[in-house]
Design a protein around this nucleic acid. Structure first.
Lengths: 153, 153
DNA sequence: ATTGAAATCGCGACCAA
DNA sequence: TTGGTCGCGATTTCAAT
């Protein structure tokens, strides 16, 4: 059971808002409501749609947090350097993401802190003390543009 | 606006299956269907529920493989530029994160695509067609050092 | 703030083409 | 395959407690 380009379009729309009606989805992909309904049923039974869930908000009620996007440049990318770096990063719960970038000596991190002061601590205590780190470039995220992702259009 | 133990129970049930009827959920938590519906509306407006999405199966269209870290530079940061950009980005489910950076004209995105080719599509069809975009800088993530850890509630 | 009734809406299962 | 219609259940609104 293979997937059509229309099926892909349906899945994209459902990812943004799984509560859209079959009529709305069908209108977007050029199908009638009943045809769209059948495709979705097929996708469910074929296992391409495992289920439906809510996307929860972050933190407790209105708790403000600061996101830092951090670019860490290493002088080398040997395995022991990477291993030590990643171990230290995994031990720091404020680091929510950490990607090793291809073609450079960089890690890109997202660090979620309570405020700028607590980020300063993470920066000075953890990041800057790692071996082989040439440069650390931190950028403050003013806002999360997806924090308000709601009913798609 | 603080959440109740009943609200927590509702959120737990919705996480497992967001398509349960309000009557079923209400029965589980000891509320009527309409009261349960009211609670859910409150949770949505308070930001505890960001939205509803599908859980995609493996091996199908939903399996994302590559992460792209993208730096988008705008020529201006007026509100209408930002608004248009963010609206377009919210309509693209492959964009998993989008942060507006303080002190520059940049957005930083994380885009999750099936492969390099499908990222190329997103890049050319969506990102590069936005008004006011001066530069797009994409970096391929070789690996996620945290191993796709997800934020629970 | 919760309830229950009423009206509307969308789903799911039939048809015909 | 698709589009159309219909019955039923669910959602949503609203008055009442």
């Amino acid at each position: 059971m293979d997937i059509d380009s229309r099926d892909r379009a349906i899945l994209r729309l459902l990812q943004i808002n799984a509560r859209r009606t079959h009529a709305e989805i069908g209108e977007q992909v050029g199908l009638s409501a009943s045809a769209c309904h059948r495709r979705i049923r097929m996708l469910e039974q074929a296992g391409h749609i495992r289920g439906y869930t809510v996307v929860l908000g972050r933190g407790g009620a209105g708790e403000r947090r600061v996101n830092m996007l951090v670019q860490v440049t290493l002088e080398r990318q040997t395995e022991d350097y990477l291993g030590r770096f990643e171990r230290a990063v995994r031990a720091c719960p404020e680091v929510k993401e950490c990607f090793l970038i291809a073609g450079s000596f960089d890690y890109w991190l997202r660090v979620e802190a309570e405020d700028a002061a607590s980020y300063e601590l993470i920066h000075s205590e953890i990041l800057s003390r790692l071996p082989g780190v040439t440069r650390i470039n931190s950028s403050l995220a003013m806002r999360d543009a997806l924090g308000q992702r709601r009913d798609g259009m």
